[in-house]
Structure formats: C-alpha cells, structure tokens
Amino acid sequence: MAGRLRVLKTYKLYINGDFPRSESGRTSKVLGSDGKLLAHVCKASRKDLRDAVSAAHSGLSGWAARTAYNRGQVLYRMAEMLEGKSAEFSDILSTTISGGRRRAEREVGRAIERLVCFAGWSDKYSQVLGCNNPVAGPFYNFTVPEPTGVIGIVAPDEQPLLGLVSLIAPVLCAGNSVVAIGSDQHPLATAVMGEVCATSDVPAGVINLLTGDRQELAGILADHREVQGIHAAGVDTDTRIALEAGAGENMKRVTVRNITGKGWYDDRDCHSPYWIEPFIEYKTIWHPSAC
C-alpha cells in the first residue's frame, strides 16, 4: 500500500451525545512529533461551550437519578471500550508525545485502571463519606452526599488521556455531569475519548468533550453561572486565578490540582474517595424519632 494517500480525518466535538463541528467553523492542525500533519480537530467557541453546558444540564437529572450500581456499570463499560481502543490511543499518544510507545501504553493502561476504580466507587463512596449523626435529642439524623451539578473539567497537557480520565471519573461516579476541555497541545486523546463515551452507554449530555484554546475556554467556564464546579489540573497561574475567582460568580466549587508527572500514577492519591468529595454536597436530614 506504499504511496496510498491517507484519509485525513477532522475530529469533531462531542456534545449531547452527538459529534458536531464547531459552530465557529474553526479547526486547528494536529502535527506528529515528526512535524507531519496527522489530523484536524475542531476548535470550540464560546457558543459551543455554552451549548455543552446546556447539554450537561439536560443530562444531569437523569444521570443523578440512576442507581449508583447502574452508574458503576456505565463507568465500567467505558473502561471496556477504552480497552478495546487502547491500540488506537497508544498510536495517537506515541506519535504526538515523546517517550515512545511504552510510555503511551502505560498512560492508556492507567487510564483504564482509573475508570475501573471509580466504577467500583460509585456505590460505595456514600457509605464512606456519609453517616448518621448521634444528635442529642429525639431525632433520626443522617448525612448523605449528593451530586453538585454540572462540573467543568480542564484537563492537563501532560498525560492528556490519563489526566482527562482522572479528572472526569470521580466527578461522574458521584452523579454529576461534565463539560471537559481537553489538552490543546495534544487534543486527539480528548477527541477519541468522545468515541469511547458514545459507545459506552453514557447517556447523552452526561459527558461533553471540547477541544480548542484551553485557556480561553477555561475563562468562559469560570464565569459561567450554570456551571456548579470546576476540576482542573496543569493550568498556569493566571488560569488558576481565573478559575478560582469563578467561585465569586455563583459559588462554584473549584478544585485545581497541582499534580504533574508521576503524580498521575499515584493510585493512593488519585483512586481515593477524596477525589470525589469536592464534587458532592452533603445533605443532612432530620426527622423526629418520637411520636
């Protein structure tokens, strides 16, 4: 097949279960580490991001209302689909990131493990984080975690697949919906992740994935009043300040992680329920126990 002209794909956005192009018509080139053109990706605009937030809102209540067991099954299905696409992800990551194929395979493998881990957490974290409370009076009183709402994800450039999956999985497992901005240096992992979501029983709107100018989109996310939380990593100081100041807009819950390199492979940290905790709201319910 030497000399055959390859079909050059343009990867699209993933919003509300569909794969639209950016309404802006903007795209950008993705080059391999050898400088050759690999593909095009859509460059999401403000309007695309706002559409994604609307989609996440429409997906939220149904997802939150599913049983925890069912959410776990869907996360596990994502792991299965990612496993099936692991060769494709390894190709993408090894052609765009230095470190070679072994590094890429390691990243893909760990991303799969992370999904498996949080698939298991979905029907357990409320038992670990919630409790009943021995109040000094004739009341039955208990505290349960509930999802925070629509969570904006800003994924790192470093470990673009593992970082993205690590930030999404705990948020999703607690019943939140997600609008994620992927790495702009290495956007293909995010783009192909849309294909994983679309084929793994994730209901439309629950996960929305955007590629584009990460810093620009992060600023829009921070100011968006319909976004209830932010989970970010690998951002510069200005972006961090912009994201945290977003709390002043509508009291979003903002977690910006200082995690780099090997940190993404630290399961003790990244697999803990304390990654779920920032994206739940504790509800405490009282009822008289004497009549």
Partner: peptide, 15 residues
C-alpha cells in the same frame, strides 16, 4: 444542605 422533616430549626454539634 439541611432538610428538616416534620420539625424545623434543629441544630446539633454532631450534625
């Protein structure tokens, strides 16, 4: 964050 059912304005250090 707090829901009082058939009561209201109850508080406790453990709650």
């Amino acid at each position: 964050g707090v829901v009082w059912c058939n009561t209201y304005n109850q508080f406790d250090a453990s709650s």
